[in-house]
């Protein structure tokens, strides 16, 4: 009962567009709530036992993402600067502008990079606690995604290069399309994916399932999701003949049933086996090469 309420409440906050398909929505949730409840019970058991396995965390339990955090991480040195405040203020009214809860909400103030507002914003919606949100954000910025939001954004740029490299290894036809005279294209296509961790890009429920993995097993999940999306729509992407075309296709592949059916997306081995093996050695070795290349570029 409490779970269903939480889920409903979280969803009820987004005003529906005129063409919203209520029938499809009801159908999806009548099926998904069953899975959802089963997961809740599993997670409750796991968290009690202190286990660190993934699968899905339910909305009711998501506030306990914090359990996976180190107890005290480094605190932010309280430098406040007018320009930083100005930057945050600029985006305050542009964070989930269509979400009623956000019309007047502030976000926790840390070194600010656009994109963090989405993350922080959603953390607050989910955990309903500014403090927990703060520490979750701290874990993301400091530990899970180092240098993603730093001024040079080297971590994010490196990971984009890593993704490019992974696509070269696993989906060479797509890589050939990108490399064909469009050297800088990857940032254009995927910076939103990495920067917002799929928030506002994939459907909310799918994003939450991805974040479950992100907080519990780390950043590797981002590559898996990206590769799965690209691989699933490979033929579609390869139809593109121009840069705008490619961009448009990369927008389209984040929509539709394939990503809305989050449980299938995550569970039916798509995320975990579709892109082929993705070993941690590959993931850790690649950034070193990519970072060297990025630093060489200046």
């Amino acid at each position: 009962m409490e779970l269903a309420e939480c889920a409903q409440a979280a969803r009820a906050r987004v005003p529906r567009p005129e063409d919203f398909d209520y029938a499809a929505y009801e159908e999806f949730f009548s099926l998904y709530l069953v899975i959802f409840t089963k997961r809740a019970i599993k997670w409750a058991k796991l968290l009690k036992g202190g286990g660190g396995i993934r699968r899905s965390v339910t909305v009711g339990l998501r506030p306990r993402w914090t359990k996976s955090l180190d107890t005290t991480t480094n605190c932010f040195k309280g430098e406040s600067s007018p320009s930083l405040e100005e930057a945050i203020r600029t985006d305050l009214n542009r964070t989930f502008p269509d979400n009623v809860r956000f019309r007047k909400t502030a976000e926790p103030c840390v070194g600010y990079c656009q994109g963090m507002n989405y993350i922080a914003g959603y953390l607050i919606l989910i955990t309903k606690s500014e403090e927990e949100s703060f520490w979750l954000l701290d874990a993301l910025v400091g530990r899970i995604l180092p240098n993603y939001y730093s001024p040079a954004m080297l971590g994010l740029k490196t990971d984009q290069e890593v993704l490019a490299e992974l696509v070269r290894m696993k989906l060479p036809a797509v890589a050939a399309l990108m490399d064909d005279g469009h050297g800088v294209l990857w940032t254009l296509l995927v910076s939103g994916w990495f920067n917002c961790l799929f928030m506002d890009i994939l459907p909310v429920e799918t994003v939450l399932r991805i974040w479950d993995c992100l907080f519990n097993e780390g950043s590797k999940i981002i590559f898996r999701v990206a590769l799965t999306l690209i691989k699933q729509h490979q033929a579609f992407i390869l139809e593109a003949s121009s840069v705008p075309d490619i961009c448009d296709k990369f927008k389209q592949i984040t929509k539709g049933d394939f990503v809305t059916e989050c449980h299938t997306f995550m569970q039916n081995c798509k995320i975990f086996s579709e892109p082929g093996s993705l070993s941690m050695t590959t993931i850790t070795r690649l950034p070193e090469n990519s970072r060297a290349a990025l630093l060489a570029q200046g």
Partner: peptide
């Protein structure tokens, strides 16, 4: 555009 998000990276139109 009433409810405008900030732009991440680059967007375009024609």
């Amino acid at each position: 555009k009433q409810d405008s998000n900030h732009t991440i990276g680059v967007e375009f139109g024609s």
